[in-house]
Deep mutational scan, measured.
Amino acid sequence: LKTAGVNTTDKEMEVLHLRNVSFEDAGEYTCLAGNSIGLSHHSAWLTVLEALEERPAVMTSPLYLEIIIYCTGAFLISCMVGSVIVYKMKSGTKKSDFHSQMAVHKLAKSIPLRRQVTVSADSSASMNSGVLLVRPSRLSSSGTPMLAGVSEYELPEDPRWELPRDRLVLGKPLGEGCFGQVVLAEAIGLDKDKPNRVTKVAVKMLKSDATEKDLSDLISEMEMMKMIGKHKNIINLLGACTQDGPLYVIVEYASKGNLREYLQARRPPGLEYCYNPSHNPEEQLSSKDLVSCAYQVARGMEYLASKKCIHRDLAARNVLVTEDNVMKIADFGLARDIHHIDYYKKTTNGRLPVKWMAPEALFDRIYTHQSDVWSFGVLLWEIFTLGGSPYPGVPVEELFKLLKEGHRMDKPSNCTNELYMMMRDCWHAVPSQRPTFKQLVEDLDRIVALTSNQEYLDLSMPLDQYSPSFPDTRSSTCSSGEDSVFSHEPLPEEPCLPRHPAQLANGGLKRR
């Protein structure tokens, strides 16, 4: 031991701790050491302190810390799992109470259905409401065949629209698609105040090879029609059969078919879209009749726009005509997947739907009320060519290029400059510069009032120099000039209409 001194630092001082000593042992101690050379000694003081209470040693090893962490984590996880189980049990009790009230408590799974309603004014964004509309049932219905791709499903009954099956008599087919079909039928007692009145209706139903998605689409269309409500110039929902059998959606019946066929059937002799010497046209149409058709469609679209509904496929083929020549817009409630459109795929009647699409819908897939206005301009062109085919002879690839360059279709022969300028306004490259349906209704209403009933179509000018029955994407082998976009001569082996020498072909294109 070194004694503290003047020249001794703290580091040089050493402390020796002795245990089991008493206060009597306190004092100075000297350590002597010697050898043959000499003797040396050092002294140190022993200080006795009071004994401290002994405390248990605390484990601070890493293993002990890990044990604490794992135990704490396990406890927290157990609490979370327990909370989830309690929540599930409570929510399951509430669901079972709800389904027992709906009398569908025996169901095993559900079809996820979404009601898609486009509400954005400047995009294709949609509001999806995840309302459960249908659930599968283990119960089988008697007297009705089961669908191959869709098991029997039981829908919640809506008393406002439900019609008993025994009050619906199915008739002949009116048309069909890939998985759905429409048949003519007679409904008894659609009007609650007149329970014995028989009404001719159209009934939409699924085919035998339909899938769950097809069922989902049909129900979504029905729900959309319920929500949009009734208007004179749209196909209205009349009722539905949802209980004890396949789903039947009952809508208004339009006896004169779609507008395109309606116009073609009323072309003057010699100007029909397909040469037929025995062709006997229906009643002749006046200019006022054509303007009235456009006015009614505009009114229907104005109503749909007021309900925040974007059609996305407005064309003469999707406008139906009733016995009283009332125009009714159809298929506005269809669920369309705008992100998976095949631009080169034709519709069932051979038309390319892209020829009715606005550039922003075609290139950027942006659907708005103003893109519907563009389609309405093409529909106007169809009306005043009596069912002509837009951009005849123009392949899709060429159409993309022409639209980007600002080309537009030429004025039809039997169309006034004012109406043609309306078409051109609908085809404005900037969507915000196109008229609204409200403005179109006002303009067409004024034109109808000024147009005489006696103004019949000028038969001295050809209505349509093209054969719409030909595929639109076909290139002409005998077109006049180098560019078949601006002219389209008859093919030698097929009868077509004579070309008027002083008139540019109706399907020609102009640059805006």
Score class of each variant (00 low, 15 high):
260 R>P: 00
428 H>N: 09
358 A>P: 04
331 D>G: 03
368 T>P: 03
374 W>C: 05
291 V>G: 07
372 D>N: 01
370 Q>H: 11
468 P>R: 08
296 Q>K: 08
443 D>Y: 11
325 N>S: 10
297 V>E: 01
253 Y>F: 14
203 V>E: 01
211 T>P: 13
407 H>R: 07
217 D>G: 04
331 D>Y: 11
334 L>H: 03
340 H>L: 08
212 E>A: 09
244 D>H: 14
341 I>M: 13
462 P>H: 08
322 T>A: 15
309 C>W: 15
266 R>P: 01
295 Y>F: 06
228 I>S: 08
468 P>H: 11
441 V>A: 05
282 E>A: 11
294 A>P: 01
333 G>S: 00
369 H>Y: 14
423 M>L: 00
210 A>V: 06
233 N>Y: 15
270 G>A: 15
241 C>Y: 13
277 P>R: 10
284 Q>L: 06
380 L>V: 05
197 R>G: 06
475 S>C: 13
367 Y>F: 06
213 K>I: 04
332 F>L: 08
315 A>V: 00
399 L>V: 13
357 M>R: 04
461 M>I: 09
259 L>R: 00
414 N>Y: 12
214 D>G: 03
453 N>Y: 11
225 M>V: 12
313 D>H: 00
408 R>H: 00
343 Y>C: 08
319 V>G: 01
251 V>E: 15
364 D>Y: 05
432 S>T: 13
236 N>D: 15
248 Y>H: 11
320 L>Q: 00
326 V>G: 03
239 G>A: 06
211 T>I: 02
467 S>C: 06
213 K>N: 10
366 I>N: 05
456 Y>N: 14
472 D>N: 08
365 R>P: 03
251 V>A: 15
213 K>R: 02
417 N>H: 13
191 D>H: 08
334 L>F: 02
189 G>V: 15
371 S>G: 03
344 Y>S: 02
344 Y>F: 02
457 L>M: 12
367 Y>S: 07
216 S>L: 09
380 L>Q: 14
392 P>L: 01
396 V>L: 07
210 A>G: 11
265 A>T: 11
399 L>R: 01
246 P>H: 14
371 S>C: 06
284 Q>E: 04
217 D>H: 06
334 L>P: 01
299 R>L: 11
327 M>I: 11
167 R>K: 10
196 N>H: 06
345 K>I: 02
398 E>G: 13
178 C>Y: 07
298 A>P: 00
403 L>Q: 02
326 V>L: 14
376 F>C: 04
227 M>R: 12
343 Y>D: 00
396 V>E: 07
410 D>H: 13
168 L>R: 05
235 I>S: 10
295 Y>D: 12
424 R>W: 04
364 D>E: 04
361 A>G: 11
322 T>I: 14
303 Y>N: 12
185 A>E: 04
167 R>T: 12
288 K>M: 06
322 T>K: 15
231 H>Y: 09
226 K>E: 14
401 K>N: 10
241 C>W: 03
343 Y>H: 13
484 S>P: 15
460 S>P: 14
254 A>T: 09
279 H>Y: 07
219 I>L: 12
299 R>P: 01
214 D>E: 11
413 S>R: 09
217 D>A: 13
409 M>R: 00
273 Y>H: 12
272 E>D: 07
449 A>G: 04
437 F>S: 00
400 F>Y: 04
300 G>C: 01
301 M>L: 05
211 T>R: 09
407 H>Q: 03
216 S>A: 11
355 K>M: 13
482 E>A: 13
316 A>S: 05
337 D>N: 08
407 H>L: 04
440 L>P: 00
316 A>D: 02
485 V>F: 15
405 E>A: 09
210 A>S: 11
364 D>A: 06
228 I>V: 05
475 S>T: 11
465 Q>P: 10
194 K>N: 14
252 E>D: 03
352 L>M: 03
415 C>G: 02
245 G>D: 05
169 V>G: 02
182 V>M: 01
277 P>S: 14
277 P>L: 06
330 A>S: 13
396 V>G: 10
205 M>L: 10
283 E>V: 10
409 M>L: 09
372 D>Y: 04
462 P>T: 07
303 Y>F: 04
173 P>A: 09
311 H>N: 01
290 L>P: 01
186 E>D: 09
